[in-house]
Design a protein around this nucleic acid. Structure first.
Length: 491
RNA sequence: GGCGACGUACCCAAGUGGUAAGGGAGAGGUCUGCAAAACCUUUAUGCGGCGGUUCGAAUCCGCCCGUCGCCUCCA
């Protein structure tokens, strides 16, 4: 391992040194989306954050097994016990099969994540694909006396699990005191939550079970699937802070009651996104979808914006803030472009064990970057280190001093690895002159040549006209010091 | 009402006991036919307010003010 990693464990409310269960390996489960709508900027923050975390673990040398579920049944509109199934509700509205809704939005989700540069999980298990496992878990809980059946529903008996509330810092008594009027008298205790729901007549998504036709409760899937793929006890469970209670609390209760073993060793929770200062939520209807954001900003800019604040800090989304981030990112991209022009070999591997201190002190910058990331994945601090390094690189390039042999390649590889491979904030076509191909590229180059001729003849009126007209269709020309002109395509 | 976070320059945002990172914007400069872009320099004696602990606090403690979140679906 390149370094020890310290992370903030929600369970103990303090930073702890990460010690894996199995040397060199780490198992991570992150709560995935319920696929009944397009993903919003909050999903973006959550999955980009965990993507950076996973990438960093891999960079440091861990073999990571990353599981992230897709919720395609059981998530109700009101809470774990009441309301319609979110997916089934959408399906009714559109008069389609629920699985069509699932398919549509699951694809939409992956499409958005791909654009954000989120590396796909190793497994994306779906709740409907694990009904058997969920029924088995429910049966085990009933058998062990932790759950009971009532009218075709199965509830977890919170009173039997004294640890309930530990993760979120809540007391069952307080919950009961603050609970809404309990209309379901069949529950032993108002705080009990459903692990299996009876399917009423007309309910589309249903499966046979020992308690009659029904469907699994939302919390149950994460227990069943995480333990199936990662074991009864595993290293890291992540998710949004809003799921800490009740979702994760319920997962712990179900899992530990069933196995008698600790469920998760480190809990990681990312903070929420607000929009112009207020919370974004589906019920308020003020959420910004990622597709909305992409219509305005480059996905890499969104990713950069997200990683410029800490995953445990709230993030306020506003056009101005993202624009500012985008301009900062341009500097990074520009350096990449310049290093390419200086002949950097993009394929060369970087040896991080043998970094030079001259002419840029890469050894020091690497050490600082690594320290920031290892300290609870402090991506904003890590990015700041990269920008400090950028200043040195720019000074070096601007000084006109000869670049040492392999210098451009080394600097390029350094940035490429830390900013690109780990943080994912360098788009794959970074710094390339062209954003379009073939004939369009040739046409632009033709116009550039015509403009160069006009300038040579001091016909600045024509030259400026060409520049302006190109700008009007989104092609920005930039005259270089050596007399050449490059262009970039505006998003 | 219960629980928990947070409040750092014009904006965004690191920093959890040793004397304020980074980005944007602004200002000055280099370059340029001009422009754009790029690059360089610069911008908080102070970290919501008032007390306290300490040789020393943005960092710890107390109170107050303000914002946000969870307690009901949400990443």
């Amino acid at each position: 391992m390149k370094t020890d990693i310290f992370l903030y464990n929600s369970l103990t409310r303090q930073k702890e040194k990460f010690v894996p269960m199995s040397e060199g390996k780490v198992g991570i489960y992150v709560c995935g989306p319920t696929v009944y709508n397009h993903s919003h900027i909050g999903h973006g923050k959550s999955y980009v954050s965990f993507d950076a975390i996973v990438r960093f673990f891999r960079f440091v040398g861990y073999k990571v097994f990353y599981v992230q579920n897709i919720t395609d049944v059981g998530h109700l509109t009101d809470n774990a016990d009441e309301g319609d199934d979110k997916i089934e509700k959408e399906a009714r509205k559109d008069r389609v099969d629920p699985m069509e809704i699932v398919e549509t939005f699951m694809r939409s989700y992956f499409e958005d994540m791909d654009r954000l540069g989120v590396v796909r999980p190793d497994i994306s298990p779906r709740a409907t694909g694990h009904i058997v496992e969920q029924i088995e878990l429910a049966k085990a809980l009933v058998t062990a006396g932790y759950a009971y059946e009532a009218g075709g529903n199965v509830y977890f008996d919170v009173a039997k699990f004294p640890e309930y509330g530990r993760l979120s810092g809540k007391k069952v008594d307080d919950l009961i005191a603050g609970a809404r009027i309990d209309v379901r008298s069949e529950k032993h205790n108002p705080a009990d939550f459903a692990i299996w729901k009876k399917a009423e007549a007309g309910h589309i998504m249903r499966w046979p079970s020992p308690w009659g036709d029904g469907f699994p409760g939302w919390h149950l899937e994460c227990s069943a699937m995480s333990m199936k793929y990662l074991g009864q006890t595993f290293d890291i469970h992540g998710g949004g802070l809003d799921n800490q209670f009740p979702h994760h609390e319920c997962e712990i209760a179900q899992s530990e009651a069933a196995t008698g073993k600790p469920f998760v060793r480190y809990w990681l929770h990312n903070n929420m996104v607000t929009v112009n200062g207020t919370k974004m939520s589906k019920s308020l209807g003020n959420f910004v979808t990622l597709k909305d954001a992409f219509a305005r900003f480059d996905p890499t800019t969104i990713r950069f914006f997200i990683l410029q604040s800490h995953y445990r800090s709230p993030l306020d989304y506003s056009n101005g803030a993202v624009e500012g981030a985008g301009k900062g990112l341009e500097r990074l991209k520009n350096v990449i472009r310049q290093l390419k022009e200086l002949g950097a070999d993009p394929m060369a591997e970087t040896d991080f064990d043998r970094l030079p201190e001259e002419p840029v002190n890469l050894r020091r910058y690497y050490s600082e970057w690594l320290g920031a990331m290892a300290d609870d994945f402090n991506t904003p601090a890590a990015i700041a280190v990269l920008f400090e390094m950028l200043k040195d690189v720019n000074t070096l390039i601007g000084s006109g001093a000869p670049m040492p042999a392999g210098g451009a390649t080394l600097l390029y590889g350094f940035i490429r690895t830390l900013a690109g491979d780990v943080l994912g904030i360098i788009p794959s076509e970074a710094g390339g002159g062209a954003g379009r191909k073939d004939i369009e590229m040739d046409l632009v180059n033709l116009l550039i040549k015509m403009r160069a001729d006009a300038r040579k003849g001091r016909d600045f009126k024509l030259a400026d006209s060409i520049r302006t007209e190109l700008q009007n269709i989104g092609v920005i020309l930039e005259d270089k010091k050596d007399g050449t002109t490059t262009y970039k395509v505006e998003k």
